[in-house]
């Protein structure tokens, strides 16, 4: 839309308006339209206001509002605030650093998310490279589709399906027992193993797509040129392919890290008492009676700041461009 342009002479008058067939014609002919949208559409200032007001109101109310309210409540002693007025305090933030019960899961969450990100990168990179460069172009779409289909199943269904594989009476333990490798089932569920397995299962797509689109853009001539100059496969990878796919690596890692930090479904179904990570701590504070809300808000704000600044720092250090969602 070219909203900044002023209306031109000759098109401002409503008399010149053509007659449209169908429902648009009915709408534009109606007196209601001429008195409302017609007037707005004819006046540049009204159009500008119309263009700006709804998006700004939406963004301020629903994108900034909730975070602002969370920040406000994180400074309160109790919520709801007593009638005498809210007392602002930093106690909720102090509680986090004083209490290892909260502090340790947070550290664990950060390490867990970093490890999951690295593992996902290592697992998914060859797959993305294979689809983007090795497969013949006419088969590429189909190969990619095969990887996308599982992700159309929701979070809950995918997490639940991991239980089928890893449970004590699940497929893997059954197979190992039939083969005779074990006598009694290995408890795999409710451990860090099942948790990471499930999380990687949930998020691999967010690594795959950025990597795929970055690797696909690398011109094959560059790789061929490196080969002609005598670079072996490893050298070609290290000096040509890897640097040129940096954008994809940075976007993929950032996305995966941010999602893993806030992962909630997987620990709920696949985690156990030994694998308590921070999202569960926060969620528990909101499930309990309301007097824990200020602490929960403070913890959420801390997690938000730490996770976003970790990603920001990572992007700055590695030097990729900012995360793009498309």
């Amino acid at each position: 839309m070219t909203e900044s342009r002023t209306s031109r002479p000759g098109t401002a008058g409503r008399e010149a308006a053509p007659r449209y067939r169908g429902w648009i014609g009915q709408v534009t002919r109606s007196p209601l339209y001429a008195g409302t949208i017609g007037v707005l559409a004819a006046s540049p200032r009204a159009r500008l206001v119309l263009l700006v007001i709804v998006p700004l109101a939406w963004i301020v109310t629903f994108n900034i509002g909730p975070i602002y309210q969370m920040g406000r409540i994180s400074l309160m002693q109790t919520y709801p605030a007593p009638d005498s007025g809210a007392v602002l305090t930093l106690d909720n933030y102090r509680l986090f650093f004083r209490e290892p019960l909260y502090f340790m899961p947070f550290i664990r969450s950060l390490i867990f998310a970093a490890l999951v990100t690295v593992v996902t990168l290592i697992v998914v990179y060859p797959v993305a490279y294979y689809v983007a460069k090795v497969i013949r172009p006419q088969n590429r779409k189909r190969a990619l589709l095969l990887l996308l289909v599982p992700f159309w199943a929701g979070e809950i269904i995918r997490t639940f399906s991991v239980i089928m594989l890893l449970a004590n009476r699940g497929a893997l333990n059954y197979l190992l027992r039939e083969v005779g490798l074990i006598d009694r089932p290995i408890p795999m569920l409710y451990t860090y193993f099942s948790l990471s397995f499930g999380v990687v299962y949930l998020i691999a797509l967010y690594m795959l797509l950025p990597l795929y689109s970055a690797i696909e853009k690398i011109p094959s001539q560059l790789v061929d040129a490196a080969a002609d100059l005598g670079a072996g496969p490893f050298e070609r990878f290290r000096r040509v392919i890897l640097p040129l796919s940096k954008d994809g690596i940075v976007s993929g890692c950032s996305l995966v890290y941010l999602i893993t930090i806030g992962v909630f479904t997987a620990p709920l179904l696949l985690g156990g008492p030994n694998t308590v990570i921070f999202p569960e701590i926060i969620a528990a504070l909101f499930h309990a009676s309301n007097d824990k809300w200020p602490a929960g808000s403070a913890f959420s704000i801390l997690m938000l700041i730490v996770s976003l600044s970790t990603v920001g720092l990572f992007m700055k250090l590695v030097g990729g461009r900012s995360v793009r969602l498309s």
């Binding site: 900034i64 909730p66 309210q69 969370m70 941010l258 909630f264």
Partner: peptide, 27 residues
């Protein structure tokens, strides 16, 4: 700036997004 703020809910971790909305509707 408008674009960055418009994308905010997509980069905030899901759980925090959900909890901040829970607080918001309560307020």
């Amino acid at each position: 700036m408008i674009f960055a703020l418009a994308c905010l809910p997509a980069v905030v971790p899901g759980l925090i997004n959900a909890i901040s909305m829970r607080i918001f509707i309560r307020v």
